[in-house]
Design a binder for these strands. Structure first.
Length: 934
RNA sequence: GCGGCUGUGGCGUAAUUGGUAGCCGCGCUAGACUUAGGAUCUAGUGCCGAGAGGCGUGGGGGUUCGAGUCCCUUCAGCCGCACCA
C-alpha cells in the first residue's frame, strides 16, 4: 500500500478538530509552557513558504513539550489593523474590515493545511472590539498614571495631585515633559483647565505638541522605528519633520528598566545589542551656561565634562526654543533665512548631506569654568530631539565641532597633552589633560569624574543620565486602527468611563482625510460623546455642553500587538484584560519565535506596555518574553533564461557566453532542477509562444541566483502547492531540514524529494507493497535497540536546542538503518512514531492508530532512551602520526591507556608509518584517538 | 565610522564542543528493473593524481601531540545603529 498523504492528512486534521485535541485549559497539576509565534498581519498575498518556518518550529517544540508532560499554551491570531488594507480601501472603496476578513480566511486555510497544534478557541484579532477594548482600557490607565523615579514604577495620578495640593511640584522625582515649578498655593488656585494642562506634563499617555515624522503620501505621522533612512517603512515615501499635537506614550520613563531587563532574558546577543543601541544610555552632566547681558541660562548635556575648558562656542538646534530668545535684532534676518532653509530640508537630506551649515545668533554665553565669553551659533548638526537641543562645542575633541569650527574659523583649544589636531579632532577618551585649570595632569577618565563632581558642587549643573529612546508618538491620522477613548471639552481631553468601552470604530463614507485636513474619522457622522447618557451619538449633535467631539486620530500598529500574549491566556474575559489567577498560571511567554524586523518596534513597545501593566498590578511578570528566537529569512532561488539580444531565441546556460544575451527571470514553478519545461515556458506568456531555444544535451539549463522571495522575481513558492504535491508532513520536515532555524537560507523545492522518500521508507517499515501490515511483536536485537535509542537521545537533545535540521537527519539515519536491518518490530517502531510525531504529526497519528491505539499520539509520552543500549564493546581507534590519521584499529572500549599504546606499537602498520624514526611520545585519549609523535 | 552575525564539496548542510572534516539530503556518474521514467533499487561521488600519495573548512600568522572549532590579523557578504554631544 502506498503512503497516501492526502487521505491521511485530511483524516487526522478532521479527527483533531472533532476531538478538540489542541484545546488547552489550566491544569493545576501540570507545569505550564507557553509557546508563542509573532502573529501575522494578514496580507493580501497570502503565505509563502517562508512564513510558516517559525510556526513549524514552534509547533514542533509545543508538541514535544506536550509529549514531555507539560501543559502547553500555543495560540494564534491576527494583527488585523494595518496600512495595506486601508490603502486598498482608499483605492477601491472596499471597507478594510472586509479585506481583512477575507485575507484572514485565506491565511487560516493555508495554516490549517500544515497541521498546526494551535488552540483556535483562543484566536484573537486586534480589530475585534472585544479585544481592543483592553487596548483602550490600558490607554486610559496610562492617562491616569505618572512615573515615579524614586519608586521606579508607574503610580496613579491621584497620588501626584495629592502631592501638588500639599507641597506643589517641589522635590518631585518624576517623569515629565518639562520641569515645572509651582507651590501648593499656586496649584490650589488654578482652574480645572489649568490643572489638567499641568497634569498633561506628567501623564504616561499625554497630548503634546511635538516634532513628528510626517509622511505626506501616507497622510499620517510615523514612529521613529517606522522611518528608515528618512523614508517610511511602508511604501518608502519621504518623511518630513513637523510640529503637531499628538498623543504620546512616556516610554522614556522606562528606559532604564528596559535596559536592565535585557540582562534577565534569553534573547540573542545581537537583538539585545540592537535594543541597547536604541535605548542609547549615556552618562554625563547637564550644565548651565549663562548668557551675556541676559538672565537666560543655556542648558546643555555632555558626556565630556572634562573638556569644558576647551569650549569655544555653543550650538543650538534650529528647532530649539532658545533660538528666538537668543537671536539679536542685528542677526534676526540671517537667522530667519537659515531656519527657513533648514526647514525645507527633509530628514533624509539632513542625514545624507553632511555639508557644514550654520548661523550666528548674535548672543554670547560665558564658560562656567573659565568665564571666557563664547559665541552661540545655530546649526542643524545639533539634534533637537537629543539632550537639551543645545551643545557646548569642543572643536579639539569632537569631530563635528571640529568641522564646524574650521568652516567658520572659530578657535580650537587642544586639551590633551601631545594630541595632534592640525587635521582632525582627537575624539578618543584617553591621554592627560592640559589647558584645563584644576583638571591639568589628570587622565581623561579621572578628569571626567572630577569635573562632574565639581560642576555638581558648584551648582553649575548636575550629573545626569541621558537616553536616546524617545517617547512613542501614539496618534495616527488613519481610519483602520483602534479609536482613542477620548473626547474633548474646551480643547481639553477627557477619557471615556471604562464601563463604556469598547468605543467602537465608526463607519465612514470615505477613508481619506476630510476637506479641512482632519483625519478620516472626521468623516464619521456618528462620532460624538454624550456625556450624560454615556454613549456615542451623531456628530451633528455636538453642543459642547453635554455632547462633545470624540478624538479623530486612531492608535498605531504597535498598540494592538503590545499585550496580545496576555489576552491569549484569557481571550473571552470581558471583565478584565486577563484574570489574575489565569495570569498567575500562564505567567509569561516561555518561547517566542519571530522575525528580527521587530527588534526596535514591537519588542520594545510590548516590553514597555508589559512593564506598565506590571506596575498596575494587573500581571505578575515584568518581562513578557523569556526566551526569544529569531527565525532566519527564507530567501528565494530565482531562475533565469538568456535571451539573445533582439531575438526571441533563448540559449541554455553553458552556451550563453557565445552570444550577446539578456538574462530574464523565469517562474521557478516551470523549472525543475534548473531544467526549463519548454512547453510550459511557451504557454507562460504570449510573447514566448514562438520562442526558439538553443539547447545543450537536449535540455534548456537555467541560471540561478539567491534573491529575496518576491512576486517580481518569479521565485515565490506557495506552501499550498507543496502540501498538494507532497503533503504537510513533508513540508514540515523539509522546512526544518533546510538548515538551522536562525539562519537565512534559500528555498529550493528540488531537495524536497529526499524527505518525501524518507516518509515513504518509514511507511514501508509498516506496510508491504501489497498493503499488508507487517509489524511484528518479535524481540528487538541489540543493534535495532541501539539505532532506536540513539535516535531518541539525539532528537530529544536537538529539540531542546532548537536544532531541528539535525533531528530530521537523525530520523533519516534511523530509518535507513532499520530498512537495512529489515526491522518491522513494534518494540522499535512504536517509540519511533512517538518521537517523530512532533515533526510529522499526520503520518505518525496514522501509524500510531495502526499500531492499535485509539487515542491521539499527541497525548502519548515522549520515549525515554536507555544508555545501556548505546554502550559499545569496542572502539575503532584512529591511529595518527604527527596528527595525520593513517589507519584505524578496533580495540576494546574499556582498554587502558597503556594497553592501547602497547597495541598501537605492536601493530605492523605502525612501523611502516614510523619508517625507522624514533618516537618522541605517544598521546592516547581513551575512547577518542591515538597520536604518535616522532 | 561603530556594533553584531556569517564564510566548510556543484547546492542546502553536519561535525559528540580541541580528537578520523564532509554525516543527512539534493544534484551528478554508472548499473538493475522497465514500453517509459520527473518511479524504485544498487554502487560511486571534496579536489589533484593512473597509483602511492598529496592538498583541503575565505586568506595569512600563532597556540597545541592534534585546530573547522581557541588566539591575533586580514578579506568578503549580510544585518542593525549612525551627526546621540
Amino acid at each position: 500500500m502506498e503512503y497516501n498523504f492526502k487521505e491521511i492528512e485530511q483524516k487526522w486534521q478532521s479527527y483533531w478538530k472533532k476531538h478538540n485535541t489542541y484545546k488547552t485549559d489550566i491544569k493545576e497539576n501540570k507545569e505550564k509552557y507557553y509557546v508563542l509565534d509573532m502573529f501575522p498581519y494578514p496580507s493580501g498575498a497570502g503565505l509563502h513558504v517562508g512564513h510558516p518556518l517559525g510556526y513549524i518550529a514552534s509547533d514542533i517544540y509545543s508538541r514535544y513539550k506536550r509529549l514531555k508532560g507539560f501543559n502547553v499554551l500555543h495560540p494564534m491570531g491576527y494583527d488585523a489593523y494595518g496600512l495595506p488594507a486601508e490603502q486598498y480601501a482608499i483605492q477601491t472603496g472596499q471597507h478594510p474590515a472586509i479585506t481583512t476578513d477575507k485575507n484572514i480566511e485565506r491565511y487560516r486555510e493555508q495554516l490549517d493545511k500544515i497541521g498546526f497544534s494551535f488552540d483556535w478557541d483562543r484566536e484573537i484579532r486586534t480589530s475585534d472590539p472585544g479585544y481592543y477594548k483592553w487596548t483602550q482600557w490600558t490607554f486610559i490607565k496610562m492617562f491616569e498614571s505618572y512615573y515615579c523615579y524614586d519608586e521606579k514604577q508607574a503610580r496613579p495620578m491621584t497620588e501626584l495631585i495629592e502631592c501638588f495640593e500639599q507641597q506643589g511640584s517641589k522635590g518631585l522625582n518624576v517623569a515629565c515633559t518639562e520641569e515645572l515649578l509651582f507651590t501648593a498655593e499656586e496649584w490650589n488656585t488654578k482652574t480645572e483647565k489649568e490643572r489638567r494642562e499641568i497634569l498633561m506634563n506628567y501623564r504616561m499617555a499625554y497630548l503634546a505638541d511635538t516634532m513628528v515624522n510626517w509622511c505626506p503620501q501616507l497622510g499620517t505621522v510615523l514612529a521613529n522605528d517606522e522611518v528608515i533612512n528618512g523614508l517610511s517603512e511602508r511604501g518608502g515615501f519621504p518623511v518630513e519633520q513637523r510640529k503637531m499635537r499628538q498623543w504620546c506614550l512616556r516610554v522614556s520613563a522606562y528606559a532604564q528598566r528596559l535596559l536592565d531587563g535585557l540582562d534577565r532574558i534569553d534573547w540573542t546577543e545581537s537583538l539585545k545589542e540592537t535594543q541597547r543601541n536604541w535605548i542609547g544610555r549615556s552618562e554625563g552632566a547637564e550644565m548651565k551656561f549663562k548668557v551675556k547681558n541676559s538672565d537666560l541660562e543655556l542648558e546643555i548635556f555632555t558626556t565630556r565634562a572634562d573638556t569644558v575648558f576647551g569650549v569655544t562656542f555653543m550650538v543650538l538646534a534650529p528647532e530649539s526654543d532658545y533660538v528666538c530668545q537668543l537671536t539679536t535684532p542685528e542677526q534676526a534676518e540671517e537667522v530667519a533665512k537659515y531656519l527657513e532653509a533648514t526647514k525645507k530640508r527633509t530628514e533624509r537630506e539632513r542625514q545624507t548631506d553632511k555639508k557644514v551649515t550654520g548661523v550666528f545668533t548674535g548672543s554670547y554665553a560665558a564658560n562656567p569654568l573659565s568665564g571666557e565669553e563664547i559665541p552661540v551659533w545655530i546649526s542643524d548638526y545639533v539634534l533637537a530631539g537629543y539632550g537639551t537641543g543645545a551643545i557646548m562645542a569642543v572643536p579639539a575633541h569632537d569631530s563635528r565641532d571640529y568641522a564646524f569650527a574650521k568652516h567658520f574659523n572659530l578657535p580650537i583649544i587642544p586639551l590633551i597633552e601631545g594630541c595632534d589636531i592640525s587635521n582632525e579632532s582627537f575624539d578618543a577618551k584617553e591621554g592627560v589633560m592640559m589647558n584645563s585649570g584644576f583638571l591639568n595632569g589628570l587622565s581623561v577618565p579621572e578628569a571626567i569624574k572630577k569635573a562632574k563632581e565639581y560642576v555638581e558642587e558648584k551648582g553649575i549643573g548636575r550629573i545626569k543620565v541621558n537616553y536616546r529612546l524617545r517617547d512613542a508618538i501614539f496618534s495616527r491620522q488613519r481610519y483602520w486602527g483602534e479609536p482613542f477613548p477620548v473626547y474633548y471639552k474646551d480643547g481639553i481631553p477627557y477619557m471615556l468611563p471604562t464601563e463604556s468601552l469598547p468605543l467602537e470604530l465608526p463607519e465612514v463614507t470615505k477613508f481619506l482625510p476630510t476637506e479641512t485636513g482632519e483625519p478620516p474619522l472626521g468623516n464619521a457622522t456618528v462620532w460624538a460623546w454624550d456625556e450624560t447618557n454615556k454613549k456615542v451619538v451623531e456628530t451633528s449633535k455636538i453642543d459642547n455642553k453635554t455632547i462633545f467631539p470624540l478624538e479623530l486620530n486612531t492608535m498605531p500598529g504597535f498598540a494592538g500587538s503590545s499585550a496580545y500574549y496576555l489576552r491569549y491566556m484569557d481571550p473571552h474575559n470581558d471583565k478584565a484584560l486577563v484574570d489574575k489567577k489565569v495570569n498567575e498560571y500562564w505567567k509569561n511567554v516561555d518561547l517566542y519565535i519571530g522575525g528580527t524586523e521587530h527588534a526596535t518596534g514591537h519588542l520594545i513597545y510590548s516590553r514597555f506596555w508589559n512593564k506598565f501593566l506590571f506596575d498596575l498590578g494587573v500581571i505578575c511578570e515584568d518581562e513578557p518574553f523569556k526566551k526569544l528566537i529569531n527565525q532566519g529569512m527564507i530567501q528565494g532561488r530565482s531562475n533565469f533564461v538568456y535571451r539573445i539580444t533582439n531575438t526571441n531565441k533563448f540559449v541554455s546556460l553553458n552556451l550563453k557566453d557565445q552570444y550577446d544575451t539578456t538574462p530574464l527571470h523565469v517562474d521557478v514553478n516551470i523549472v525543475s532542477n534548473d531544467v526549463l519545461d519548454l512547453d510550459k515556458f511557451k504557454a507562460w506568456r504570449p510573447e514566448f509562444a514562438n520562442a526558439e531555444f538553443i539547447l545543450e544535451d537536449g535540455k534548456y539549463i537555467c541560471g540561478w541566483a539567491v534573491e529575496k522571495m518576491s512576486k517580481s522575481m518569479f521565485n515565490v513558492v506557495n506552501p499550498d502547492d507543496i502540501v498538494e504535491n507532497y503533503g504537510a508532513d513533508t513540508l514540515r520536515l523539509y522546512e526544518m531540514f533546510l538548515g538551522p532555524l536562525e539562519q537565512s537560507k534559500p528555498w529550493d523545492t528540488n531537495g524536497i524529494d529526499g524527505v518525501n522518500r524518507f516518509l515513504k521508507r518509514l511507511w514501508g517499515l509498516f506496510y508491504d507493497r501489497e498493503g499488508n501490515f507487517i509489524v511484528s511483536d518479535d524481540k528487538a536485537t541489540a543493534e535495532e535497540l541501539k539505532t532506536l535509542h540513539k535516535t531518541i537521545k539525539k532528537v530529544g537533545f536537538d529539540i531542546e536546542n532548537f536544532s531541528f535540521n539535525t533531528s530530521v537527519s537523525a530520523f533519516m539515519i534511523c530509518v535507513n538503518e532499520l530498512v537495512a536491518l529489515k526491522c518491522s518490530k513494534r518494540e522499535i517502531l512504536e517509540p519511533l512514531v512517538v518521537t517523530l510525531a512532533s515533526f510529522a504529526p499526520h503520518i505518525c497519528e496514522e501509524l500510531y492508530h495502526a499500531l492499535g491505539y485509539n487515542t491521539s499520539v499527541c497525548n502519548a509520552e515522549f520515549p525515554k532512551y536507555d544508555e545501556k543500549h548505546l554502550v559499545e564493546a569496542t572502539k575503532k581507534y584512529p591511529i595518527s602520526f604527527n596528527g595525520k590519521v593513517r589507519f584505524t584499529m578496533e580495540l576494546p572500549a574499556d582498554m587502558s591507556k597503556e594497553e592501547v599504546e602497547k597495541a598501537t606499537l605492536a601493530d605492523e602498520q605502525t612501523s611502516k608509518y614510523l619508517d625507522g624514526k624514533t618516537i618522541k611520545k605517544i598521546i592516547v585519549v581513551p575512547g577518542k584517538i591515538v597520536n604518535v609523535v616522532f
